[in-house]
Write a protein that binds this DNA or RNA. Structure first.
Length: 106
DNA sequence: CTTATGACTTTCA
DNA sequence: CTGAAAGCCATAA
């Protein structure tokens, strides 16, 4: 099992209505300092993966969406989260999530 | 093998 | 409190 597969496996385990941070995913994998790789894994997965993996539930430590990818715009992530019954706070063209309420705790 | 880069995090001024 | 800088580790070239 390579790094990506672990990331995808964990991301798929995030229950509906919850979110997780990059650092959290990295820590669960076993490399607490590989948060950037988690983000990279998200970027690397293209095509159908986006539909089967809840990538929108993975956010940065501030509970903010920090995608720079033009094909995965924040508004789409917000839309998917809204489907998950997650409350989104819009602020300065950025979307924030209340981690105290929605953070996933395995 | 060495160098550069990134959907991050933490620390120091 | 705010902002800048370094650290981290897996991939790609």
């Amino acid at each position: 099992m390579n790094f990506y597969d672990k990331v995808y496996y964990l991301v798929k385990k995030i229950p509906r209505g919850k979110v997780a941070t990059y650092g959290q995913i990295a820590a669960l994998i076993g490399s607490p300092r590989s948060a950037r790789m988690v983000g990279w894994a998200m970027h690397a997965m293209d095509g159908g993966r986006l539909e089967e993996i809840p990538w929108q539930r993975v956010i940065n430590r501030e509970g903010r969406i920090s995608t720079t990818c033009v094909v995965h715009p924040p508004n789409q992530q917000a839309r998917l989260l809204k489907k998950d019954s997650v409350k989104i706070t819009k602020k300065d063209n950025n979307f924030f999530i209340d981690l105290n309420k929605y953070l996933w705790q395995p």
